[in-house]
Design a protein around this nucleic acid. Structure first.
Lengths: 343, 343
DNA sequence: TTGAAAGCGCTAACAC
DNA sequence: GTGTTAGCGCTTTCAA
């Protein structure tokens, strides 16, 4: 605790500067002296104080992470990806959660800035004007995950939600379904909400199948899925397939359907989005669009660290669009006119 | 970025010391001067540099968290509890994951120490000698969650796994079941593994029902539960109830049972442990022992911060045993001899 | 009450 | 190659 670089210098009979040089390999040091210093460092088990180093270097090797909710796998898996990628990179993670609150987001940006983070990863839905301004004034590298930055200087790691939703919808159409419903997210949420819905809507329209009556909206929870399907079934009991903007809503819908005596997939095909763990574990297992959560985390942290370490080079960072994938599981099947049960 | 306390001092026509005093209310300052300084601070939007302050104060307002796996809800919900409790407390969280690797744990302790954390929360299974030694040499307050510290000076926040397992087992016995199996964790894991198993075993023995043939072991995953039940059923096909050391294994077992044509709970009652989110969402919903994850997090961070801020007072911290609760759901029912199907 | 100055532990010119 | 020295931005004796 009390042992410092000065102490090492004295014991090794050299100056602090020399010790610093061997510590960082910043300048050549005579081999013998180096050995001597290293020996002392070793014997005392000395570790340089990172705080002092930060102050001097104006570099903390700290990365700030701002995320809506730590206990939601949709986010925590991204964090896990970031964390495992960062292990060898000699950075540490300062993590905060916002409960989807924009003000909290900005507040945390300020706190993280004060703590001297070298960069920031924002896993976030969407922001307001003040938020975008705060991003511009942050002055340190930022990478966003999932959401657009609306700012050229801030790279984004995401998937193509629109395209994924088109493919998912087309999958159901190809199975012969016509009365297809969707439980979407809020349209004010540009990615998981708006884009996924537009993909569904456009694909359905192209096929001449879109019907507003088979749409419900929820905030991505199990309960929202449960209620969503109950609402759709009231006005449109002949629905044969359902696309949900996330797995949790799909599971909620399956739970509701099962309680009402529907067999899945025979009476109702259900298709989710995300491929969180529950999708493969559920009964029946859920067909869904997989997004590469861990990969999102890994790629964003790598991009961020590149930006931090090549500051001033003004490299332009293209946004990264990662690939999604439709996972084959039990919850969808082809439409069978005669087999269908309608309540 | 470049605006410092010195700058503020100059603009307000006072010394750095005075600015520091108004910033921290550390010593009385003339009201007029105080106002003037505050005005300058406000107009410049000045925020003191936390790194410099850390160096001077030898206090970082950083808390280190070491956790096995960030993407597992059993752990991430604890983190969420810590995070939400810490918001108003002016501390930030430095989080690292170890993938259940003891060496990684110690390595991260060192890193966090270097970063100058004021305290540490260890969410962990169990350690070895070297690990306990590292804890003693950490020199800063530590709180452990879940696992025993084996060290008096380190308080622990946990539940009574043994008692909870006894109650869970008794519940199944009370329902009339006799051929009750268990998928346990590894016995080398003292809490979720050993204690939960001992609770089961002792209760079964007392009732004269214990049978080693109906025990399987797994590492807490869905797949382990799936395989575990398949193993038990091979040797003991007449099993009518199953207790699992965690929900994920219970779900895996239910999936297997369902695939094999067992009806749950009619042919097989299943009881889990933890009450993670999937338990209530599953089909059927899973009866389980709830542990208060968020509460664990909240309590541990409060204890830790208390220790940090009352250092030297040598308060003795009792371990906190939080209460568990058996949650009533669909997956267990009373034993009916005639209704039972055996494959 | 206030200010000057030393110091937290480390790095990086600059000079030797 | 090595040592001296001046910071990094803030807090805190110690004097005034």
């Amino acid at each position: 605790m009390k042992i410092t670089i000065k102490e090492i210098a004295e014991r090794a009979g050299v100056s602090k500067a020399t010790v610093s040089r061997v510590l960082n390999n910043s300048k050549p040091v005579n081999e013998d002296i180096k050995k001597r210093v290293l020996a002392v460092i070793d014997s005392t088990n000395f570790k340089p104080n990172a705080v002092a180093r930060s102050l001097s270097l104006k570099k903390s090797h700290l990365i700030g992470i701002i995320i809506p909710d730590l206990s939601n796998p949709v986010f925590s898996r991204i964090i896990a990806g970031i964390e495992s990628a960062i292990r060898n990179l000699d950075y540490s993670l300062l993590i905060t959660a916002t409960d989807f609150n924009v003000d909290m987001k900005m507040q945390h940006m300020q706190i993280l800035k004060d703590k001297g983070v070298d960069g920031l990863i924002l896993v976030t839905d969407h922001g307001n004007e003040a938020f975008f301004e705060a991003m511009l004034e942050f002055k340190k590298p930022i990478v966003m995950i999932g959401s657009d930055s609306a700012v050229d200087s801030i790279p984004v790691v995401k998937i193509n939600n629109y395209k994924a939703a088109c493919e998912a919808t087309q999958h159901l159409i190809n199975l012969g379904h016509e009365k297809i419903g969707m439980i979407r997210g809020p349209l004010t949420d540009p990615h998981s909400g708006y884009e996924r819905f537009m993909g569904f809507r456009d694909t359905m329209m192209k096929a001449g199948l879109f019907d507003e009556a088979r749409i419900a909206e929820g905030w991505y929870s199990f309960d929202d899925g449960y209620k969503g399907l109950s609402k759709i079934i009231k006005t449109s009991p002949d629905i044969s397939a359902l696309f949900c903007a996330c797995d949790l809503m799909a599971v909620g819908a399956m739970k509701y359907a099962t309680e009402k005596g529907y067999k899945i997939p025979d009476d109702l095909s259900v298709l989710g989005f995300d491929d969180v763990e529950i999708a493969r574990m559920y009964n029946p297992s859920l067909r869904t669009v997989r997004q590469p959560f861990e990969e999102k985390g890994r790629l964003s942290i790598e991009t961020l660290i590149h930006m931090i370490e090549h500051k001033g080079e003004h490299i332009s960072f293209a946004n990264h669009i990662l690939t999604h994938e439709l996972i084959l599981r039990e919850s969808t099947t082809s439409f069978k006119r005669e087999g269908q049960t309608i309540e």
